[in-house]
């Protein structure tokens, strides 16, 4: 599953974000390092919701942060709205930052507990000198209103007075304050209850439609991803396994890993039994990844070829790409 290759890129349609050969390494000690993201290419078109899916440790969060240049990736290019931000110096990069915003998994700890809600949301506006104090105050109220919070009640309170779902709403208001073109959502609902999760997912969809946002949605929950995304990228140990639109992916997963992930989702119906084998074990360490296809040790269809040669992404149906020597066809 070591998806290399760029056959899936769509340069002709001028993507909002184009990532090529992105590599992010973390030092382990003087000699060794981990490639959390090991040469990934993908693009995101305007108005898309690209979901990035995988288990813990597959590099999906690192990938999201690398797009924000947090930290600077080791290699590869990231072209945002026509500008290569991976080569920019700090000053130019700062000017680009309002275009890309991020919301995080743990909404409560990602908000400063000492700031009142009005100041939390005003902060980016103030830094970027968006209007006078009065104008900004009106804008804060509009933003709170847009995310479904009553400004009169919440303005003067602090983040610890709110539930997880309300804090996630505040994070969203803060993230959209500067009218970004791209919003990166890193597991925005995995810490929330199902009922609150549905509210936040619907809110994100509404914001996307209203503001013409493009979303990158990072999650390990395939059911959530299916509900919100227009395209899904499945990752394993820093590489791409499969890219497809959600309906294709769930009906006809071509990669053995995608199929195992889908099989693991519990179905809220006691009369439906999952009919294919579950995935055993956990992902190996990416300090010393397996040769060839990185999924090989956990794959039931692995052959000698999988150990020797890294599979390349190939198109098996229009818009459906898979990096596997033995894709599932049925």
């Amino acid at each position: 599953m070591a998806g290399t290759g760029k056959i899936h890129l769509r340069p002709q349609s001028s993507p909002i974000l184009s990532v090529q050969d992105l590599v992010v390494n973390f030092k382990v000690d003087r000699k060794s390092f981990v490639s959390a993201v090991a040469g990934i290419s993908f693009d995101v078109l305007r108005g898309e919701t690209l979901a990035i899916v995988g288990e813990s440790g597959c590099g999906k969060t690192t990938l999201g942060k690398a797009i924000m240049q947090l930290p600077r990736p080791k290699g590869g290019t990231i072209v945002l709205d026509g500008e290569d931000i991976s080569k920019m110096d700090g000053k130019d990069l700062r000017l680009v930052r309002p275009k890309v915003q991020m919301i995080f998994q743990d909404a409560i700890s990602s908000l400063d507990p000492r700031l009142q809600v009005k100041n939390l949301i005003d902060e980016p506006l103030k830094v970027w000198k968006r209007g006078s104090a009065e104008e900004r105050s009106g804008r804060v109220d509009n933003l709170l209103d847009a995310v479904g919070l009553d400004p009169a009640i919440v303005r003067d309170r602090r983040s610890y007075e709110f539930s997880g779902g309300q804090c996630q709403r505040i994070s969203i208001a803060r993230a959209i304050a500067l009218d970004p073109m791209l919003l990166i959502c890193d597991e925005p609902v995995s810490a929330l209850d199902v009922s609150v999760q549905a509210q936040i997912l619907n809110l994100l969809q509404d914001m996307k439609n209203k503001l013409g946002l493009t979303l990158i949605f990072i999650s390990h929950d395939l059911a959530v991803v299916k509900a919100v995304s227009t395209r899904v990228l499945v990752m394993y140990l820093g590489k791409i396994c499969e890219i497809a639109d959600p309906d294709d992916l769930y009906l006809k997963p071509a990669h053995h890993y995608s199929r195992a992930l889908i099989a693991a989702v519990p179905i809220p119906n006691p009369e439906v039994q999952v009919n294919f084998a579950r995935l055993g074990g956990e992902p190996p360490s990416s300090i010393n990844p397996p040769s060839g296809c990185r999924f090989r040790p956990r794959c039931s269809s692995a052959s000698d070829r999988c150990a020797a040669e890294e599979p390349k992404l190939q198109e098996i149906a229009p818009g459906h790409f898979v990096a596997c020597h033995h894709p599932i066809v049925d």
Partner: peptide
């Protein structure tokens, strides 16, 4: 309110 795999994508959640 649970998103489900057996529903088509892009549907609004209740």
């Amino acid at each position: 309110s649970i998103p489900r795999l057996d529903q088509p994508s892009g549907q609004r959640l209740q």
